[in-house]
């Protein structure tokens, strides 16, 4: 297990290093001088030069890359070109919205998908299965932001159960915050729940055909008991991978859903930064997204090896 972990860890670090290089290189070839952009075209040459020094723009490219990566390792993401505040703080503030939203959606997705998948698998080939699979086919195809708009139309405008948008902040209480995130989380969860339900169903169907399931039935367990004690655990392996993948989809999806509900999350930060050409913020947020995706995949790989020891030797 240690060898396996070490191997995965090395590939994790390598991936992150390459990804950071790519991001840095792409941002480097961006046209335009951030200092000039901040000061406007009429800026005095000496003010411009001073600002360039302050932002560290006059250092050589390798030095700036190392400074950027080194800073991030210590939690210093640089200073925003437009707001002149530390990027790390800006990101942390926004994460307090985007991260709870992502987790909330993940929980909803699992709560919907598990029963749906188990139900469909248990009624394989019957009406219930067909209906469930038809529903998930539709769920996969519905754009989450469109679904979000429809939810607003029904539950905010017509029924008035929820606010159409905005976020009161966590200091107004956890319930108030969760209430404001409920519609966005449902919209975000629906397509992922559909995918997860399909995976759950096919994983269960694979397991149901195994010999040990027949043995479990032969020793006197009912269908339900066998499914619960032996089927589910073994079906969880593929399901776990998809859940891991979904974390990154949900986080990316949150960025878009936030636009529908006017939530002050990472999404708003990114699009504001793109519009004001605040490239250092864009650079850091993109790196953060890539970091989350690569790290989650790493953790899924490890969880895999824990659940199924056979995978440790295979790489």
């Amino acid at each position: 297990m240690l060898r396996y972990t070490l191997k995965r860890l090395i590939s994790l670090v390598l991936s992150l290093a390459v990804a950071s290089l790519v991001i840095f290189a792409v941002i480097e070839i961006a046209p335009g001088d951030p200092a000039l952009f901040m000061l406007g075209v009429n800026a005095q040459p000496d003010t411009l030069a001073a600002l360039r020094t302050e932002l560290g723009l006059d250092a050589s490219k390798p030095d700036r890359y190392l400074a950027w990566v080194g800073g991030m390792l210590q939690g210093d993401f640089g200073t925003s070109y437009t707001y002149r505040t530390p990027v790390a703080g800006m990101i942390a503030d926004r994460l307090w919205v985007s991260l709870p939203l992502t987790i909330y959606a993940l929980v909803i997705s699992i709560l919907l998908a598990f029963p749906a998948g188990i139900y469909a698998a248990s009624r394989r080939g019957k009406m219930g299965d067909a209906a469930m699979m038809g529903t998930t086919q539709l769920g996969v195809a519905i754009p989450n932001f469109w679904f979000a708009m429809m939810l607003v139309l029904v539950f905010a405008v017509n029924l008035r159960w929820f606010n159409a948008g905005g976020f009161p902040g966590w200091d107004k209480g956890v319930w108030t915050g969760l209430h404001a995130l409920t519609l966005p989380a449902i919209a975000l969860a629906l397509p992922q729940a559909s995918i997860l339900a399909r995976v759950m169903r096919s994983a269960l169907l694979d397991v149901l055909g195994e010999d040990f399931m027949r043995t479990a039935r032969a020793k006197g367990l009912s269908r339900g008991q066998a499914l619960w004690r032996h089927g589910l655990r073994n079906a969880l392996i593929p399901v776990l991978t998809i859940i891991g993948l979904q974390v990154s989809f949900l986080l990316a999806g949150a960025i878009i859903i936030e636009q529908v509900f006017y939530l002050p999350g990472l999404g708003r930060l990114i699009f504001q930064s793109i519009n004001s050409r605040d490239l250092i913020v864009v650079e850091s947020v993109v790196m953060l997204l890539v970091f989350v995706v690569i790290t989650v995949n790493f953790l899924v790989d490890l969880a895999y090896a824990l659940v199924d020891p056979r995978l440790r030797t295979r790489t």
Partner: peptide
């Protein structure tokens, strides 16, 4: 490495630049 980039992050990076 390309696969590790979330699609949205890739699009954001390209359009930002």
């Amino acid at each position: 490495v390309i696969f590790a980039f979330p699609l949205l992050a890739m699009a954001i990076l390209i359009t930002a630049v």
